[in-house]
Amino acid sequence: MPLTNPEAPAFHETVETPEQVRLHLELAGLGTRSIAYILDTLLRYGVLLAIFVAVVLVFDVFQIHWETTGDRFGTHLILIILTLLYFFMEWGYFAMFEWLWTGQTPGKRAARIRVLKDGGGPISFLDAALRNLVRIIDSSGPMAAIGMMFIFFSKKNKRPGDLLARTIVVREHPRTLMQLLAVSDLPPRIPDDPFIDLIRRISLTSDQHDLIVRYLLRRDQLDSTTRARLCGQIVDAILNPVRLQPNSEHLSLPQEPDYERFLQGLIAVQAGPPPASRP
């Protein structure tokens, strides 16, 4: 029972790479994209507001009024920079970040999503500009309702800007490799494992393997009753077919306190030398 099925067609974009391998990209939904947008907007206007307040305070302290004081303290330069900064936050922020950060803005990075071309490749500067110049139509202020409806109802979660620039927004899960390796790095306990004979008789399906690995990874977060109950269920499911095998009476089956040790041994033995070389 995998949490996310990589083969499921819904909300996925399948991309064929030049190596003739199919990549499954998980499209970002309305919720994730809204979170990213809200973070970006808070950042844009937060920075603007902070700088604006700072300038007003400094002008106040030094008794500067830019219309009468003239160009003392580089007042004009400050006004020019404020104007340009406001313009940048309105029109340039999204396009510049998506171009420089290969499809991500600070908000998108925090929400772990990325803009890609329809074929899975990176977006160019023109794509980034195109999909973000039309934000006044589909994602700024009340117009966001239009973009949200498009993302919700369209087949590949596209707002008008995505249709124009032929882009998709995908989710990324950067931590999973570490999790996967964490389990395979469990200390091997093959030589002294008391259940070695039993373990050699079992061949795990890939679903069973995933189930055990997930259990072992998360067992410390479970309370002791649930932990014992789950562990018992998993071991039963694995041992039941063995009990039906001929000559199984003389095997020493693991008892309650040894269940987790048995599961660890099972995974560790499976990690041992492969039976045949890879085709």
Partner: peptide
């Protein structure tokens, strides 16, 4: 290993790398 965590992980790793390997002009 269809439908496995392993496949999911490799798929994610590959799709994260893809846009950096195939960059445009």
């Amino acid at each position: 290993f269809p439908h496995s965590d392993l496949l999911l992980t490799l798929n994610q790793l590959a799709s994260r790398t893809h846009p950096y390997v195939y960059r445009g002009q």
